[in-house]
Simulated assay, not measured.
Amino acid sequence: MQGTVDGFGYGMVTPVVSYLVACLGGALGLRCVVRSLNNQQSRKPGWLALGAVTIGCGIWTMHFVAMVGFRIQGIQIDYDTRLTALSLVVAIVVVGIGVFAVGYRGATNATLTAAGIFTGLGVAAMHYLGMAAIHLNGSLEYDSLTVGASVLIAVAAAIAALWAAASYRGFPAALGASLLMGVALTGMHYTGMAAVGVRLRGATDASYSTGMYGNASPPSILLPMLIGPVVFLILAGVVVMFDPQLVLGDGDWSRTTPRRRRTGIALPERPTHPPRTDSLFEPRDQRTGRHTTPRGR
């Protein structure tokens, strides 16, 4: 017996919110990755790890926000908390492979392509492992062609997002990369959900279909699990937005310092209270901002 699947139990609310969460996680994570590219010191792993965890949390949160609107007519849906948590770990680890590759091998075309493939596969792995966490009175079936299309969407959009973030400078490029990352996550999710079919085990049991959540999806299970990743995304946003080099408009995109070094002109040092550029992940030699000039010239 086939079950009737509805992925929009709350209308367009869950798709819109999940897309915004995906864009937020992508924006913060990609910013951390780009922020690390010109940092060759010991603080680079901190930015890369923050970027990987942020993107991973964005993927996971987007998926389960969207799943709040998922329901199957006539039966109750439950979730295995261990598999749900494992899907978060898998997303962070797989995305982390791509993120650290970009951070340490540079933003070359080959590296960005490989990193985008890993990031896209991380999105797909998280999605289908999260779907495996669903408990219901039946079994999920997938259309293989649609599943393949969902993976291709995730990989292609992830490559485009990484390439845009690392190749272009300025707010428009950062915004475009974030929107592409949102497309990678939500596009993959809803394409994957289009591949889902449900085969029920015999007739629907009345006591099972009218359990704690009735015919609706169980938001009271998912929403508490979303608190941790959402709080982390907020904290990551605080770290990124209060990074002094980002606030001052410089950061890794500044070309002012290289021009000064080429001309060999030393700027006069301020007599009192030089501006501080302490950053959570910035090495000490870059925080001081000192420029050396050969003597006698």
Rank of each mutant, 00 (worst) to 15 (best):
G74F: 00
L223H: 09
V102K: 09
L180G: 11
S178D: 09
L86N: 01
G122C: 05
R201E: 14
G176K: 04
F64L: 08
Q245W: 00
A85F: 13
L86F: 12
I59E: 11
V247S: 05
G46A: 07
G51V: 03
G58V: 05
A157T: 06
D205Y: 00
M225Q: 11
P258Q: 09
P283Y: 03
R82H: 13
A184T: 14
R105D: 08
R43Q: 15
L86M: 10
A91F: 02
C23Y: 03
A158M: 05
G3Q: 00
G187K: 03
H189E: 06
G228S: 12
M126R: 04
V155S: 05
D285N: 10
V16Q: 01
N215S: 09
A132R: 11
A157F: 12
R82E: 13
R260M: 15
G176V: 14
L175I: 14
V198P: 01
V183I: 15
L140Q: 13
L223W: 06
H127T: 09
A107P: 15
G122E: 01
T4H: 07
G74D: 01
I134F: 05
M12D: 02
I265Y: 10
S207G: 03
A115I: 11
L222W: 10
L112G: 03
T61H: 04
M131N: 04
N109S: 12
G251L: 05
M67I: 09
